[in-house]
Design a protein around this nucleic acid. Structure first.
Ligand SMILES: [Mn+2]
Ligand SMILES: [Mn+2]
Ligand SMILES: [Mn+2]
Ligand SMILES: [Mn+2]
Lengths: 217, 217
DNA sequence: ATTAATTTTTAGTCTTATCTAAATTTATGT
DNA sequence: ACATAAATTTAGATAAGACTAAAAATTAAT
């Protein structure tokens, strides 16, 4: 049984390693975990000892299939709890992350399977991120950043890249939620800002925004 | 903000101290916590430092009002989660305790208040134990042990003193649940066993059972 | 009132997870 | 190729929470 710290390190490597093939650098993990590189070295040695990561000195760490499975299970729990908080406890999407960070470490197979059923087997969390299945598999979607959309094209908001409370509140303010239809009226090449049509009204957004909003055509 | 260990010690003292007035002995806490007396001494010193318990060397520990409030809040969370697991996630009453031991440490005011509302403000957990309110107050009921009931009297099962999985499964087997009506047909003075009428059928139970079942007349 | 038994505390050690500072290895620039 | 910069690891320290063994205080028994 893994400690909370071990689970968090695996999750950090999972998120940074994107597709499992790349080795993640010590410094990158340190930044993600808000800790020091020396602490990371200690931990990845321990995880390597348990065959959860592959570690070669000065070469960073990569999840093994056992490590990937555990990390995916933690992410699965995190995202299922986020759905629960939004759907049943009236949390808004900018409030759930902190609590889910705690709930993701609760250890009970039955709990998570029953929660999954109670929520009617959701496929995505409130931020549009996919929920891994029991085997850690995620169904990848064809979402793309809003900044990639051409002028005059329409699309639907399906996720956020930056899920900070600040960005989510910005979206709330402008009535942009998952499922909202967007149309790109024009793009300014100078600063890469855009004018959108949202709910029949024009809205000017900066590149920071279009680069953090996932859409589907 | 308190650590998980600190919260568990406060809860142990809360459960052992019953009405808050009595000092709880180091050994009693050690047994409850499944740890050694020396570890308890270290911890109650730390809790005394934080003004959560009153500690005098060789005299055991007693919760302060601040300590009592925190302990009651942990118990509140434990019992609310137990209700959630039984009512919404199809857990049986003998499966909830272990998971609630973990969930009781999740820190979020909003979470617990929303959970309370979602559950429609339950007053008792699946074992018949009262749920403290936001201020740590519990409404005491007039429940009594089944062993105290006289021959020919009827009563209703309202709680269990022993909430071990073994005892709960024994009750399940004999179709005794909270709300079940019981009638004492006879009492054997020799071994203090009883014959009950349950669901229109006679059932012989030992003193161990009648001493661990709370009823209301 | 002593002695013996029990309870509690102290002293010292261990593990986990963190840190700082110094040493080492790898990457980069000329 | 060599010097310098950056990244990573090692060494040593610290804090929380647990343990064992020994000492001290309290309680019980004669
Ligand atoms: Mn999150
Ligand atoms: Mn999310
Ligand atoms: Mn319980
Ligand atoms: Mn209970």
């Amino acid at each position: 049984m893994l400690s909370l710290a071990e689970e968090n390190y695996l999750k950090a490597i999972y998120h940074l390693g994107k597709f499992g093939t790349i080795s993640v650098s010590t410094n990158a993990i340190a930044e993600q975990m808000q800790t020091k590189a020396s602490s990371v070295t200690d931990m990845i040695k321990k995880l390597a000892e348990k065959d959860l990561v592959i570690y070669k000195r000065y070469q960073g760490a990569k999840l093994t299939s056992a490590g990937n499975k555990i990390a995916a299970s933690v992410v699965r729990k995190h995202r299922l709890w986020e759905v629960f908080l939004v759907e049943h406890l009236s949390f808004s999407w900018d409030e759930v992350h902190e609590v889910a960070e705690q709930l993701e470490h609760i250890k009970s197979e039955k709990l998570i399977n029953q929660l999954d059923a109670f929520l009617e087997f959701p496929t995505h969390d409130p931020h549009g991120d996919p929920i891994p299945d029991k085997n850690g598999q995620i169904q990848k979607t064809d979402k793309v950043l809003l900044s990639q959309i051409d002028e005059a094209e329409s699309c639907m908001c399906v996720g956020v890249k930056d899920s900070s409370s600040e960005f989510l509140k910005y979206l709330d303010k402008h009535k942009i939620a998952l499922g909202t239809e967007l149309k790109v009226l024009s793009k300014e090449s100078f600063d890469e800002s855009m004018i959108l049509e949202v709910h029949q009204k024009p809205l000017s957004i900066s590149k920071v925004v279009s680069n953090n909003l996932f859409v589907k055509k």
